[in-house]
Design a protein around this nucleic acid. Sequence first.
DNA 1: TTTCATGTAACCTATGATGTTACATGTTTG
DNA 2: CAAACATGTAACATCATAGGTTACATGAAA
Lengths: 139, 139
Amino acid sequence: MVERAGPATSEDLSKMMATNPVVIRRIMAGLRRQGYVRSEKGHGGGWTLACDLSKVTLRDIYTALGSPSLLAIGNRTEAPGCLVEQAVNAALQQAFHDAEERLLARLGEVTLSILSADVHSRLVVRGRSEAMEDDVHVT
Amino acid sequence: MVERAGPATSEDLSKMMATNPVVIRRIMAGLRRQGYVRSEKGHGGGWTLACDLSKVTLRDIYTALGSPSLLAIGNRTEAPGCLVEQAVNAALQQAFHDAEERLLARLGEVTLSILSADVHSRLVVRGRSEAMEDDVHVT
DNA sequence: TTTCATGTAACCTATGATGTTACATGTTTG
DNA sequence: CAAACATGTAACATCATAGGTTACATGAAA
């Protein structure tokens, strides 16, 4: 979206990400609630950025999207009756917490502007390698 | 299983864990391959421990069970074409690795004997609180 | 007033984890 | 040896959930 002059429709975005417009709207709804994007209806409408990319981190987005669990395993039951389960939970609770913290901390370090810059540099690289392929074809 | 004198059948274990005997066998198969348990067929058969509980850690079990992913998120595609995906992966790769390492390290610290001891102490606590409840009922 | 776009509920579908059935293999007991 | 038991495993069924789809209401621009 950074690259675009005007608003991007859910239709456009869904094509880019090989998914469905409604899925895009569902996801963007969370970002809109936090004010990271704006949406306009009608002709020429669509989604536009509404935040300072250097101020918004992946963690903000993670939060806006409902903070789903980062770990594949973890304490399943809130207050398990099974003593073995209790023992395992007690033994690993701290580690789960630490691992999650580590991930969240990193998410908080990565701003959208950093990502944008990285995407740009990757674009350049891709451009160069495509040019090289052309050379090969020509030569 | 530590508590039992003889072998425990998949039937017994499945009842304890509120699941199905076949599910138990599926899981135990992994542990048997690593030599942590033994299985005997026929009358009086079932599962018995075959390892030193102080030598086997949760990490060993995790490995025996096929090292499933510990993180709920992560690099989905091996070599994504999408530049944004590449950029995000690059930014988070280290953090994913660190978080996973932290979990694995902790799993490696927790031996089955530690868990067993903890379960025992919880048994005592539960016993006491039940005794107290009895008192209440009596008084 | 028509066209376009979001907003959202309701439903459909694909996937993976778990549960179940069925049957083969081997072991003990009478 | 035959009957009862228990594992080993394949094949199938069920359930939960993430994602996809349809349908329609709301609102804005041409």
